[in-house]
Amino acid sequence: MSKIQDKARALIASKMKLDESEITPEKHLFNDLGADSLDFVELSVLLEREFNVKFTETETANAKTVGDLYELIEKYTKKP
């Protein structure tokens, strides 16, 4: 697991008040982690701030799992 994923996992766990071990890539944010629509907005604010990135509305709407969020962050933080 990359350092970026480690940081994102810790942040998601903290926000959702869950143990880090529960935050695995295949977990669905709504169905498995119990997130509601506002949790998702809050998570995107925290992740954008933490990694100094800006997601588009379509990207955030399409992200359904923890792995989708990891991919999104890595897309913007990947060095050319």
Binding site: S37, V41, E42, S44, V45
Partner: peptide, 13 residues
């Protein structure tokens, strides 16, 4: 609502 939420949190912080 969602846009306002994001802007409010980001700018207030």
């Amino acid at each position: 609502g969602k846009e306002l939420f994001k802007t409010a949190v980001t700018e207030s912080a």
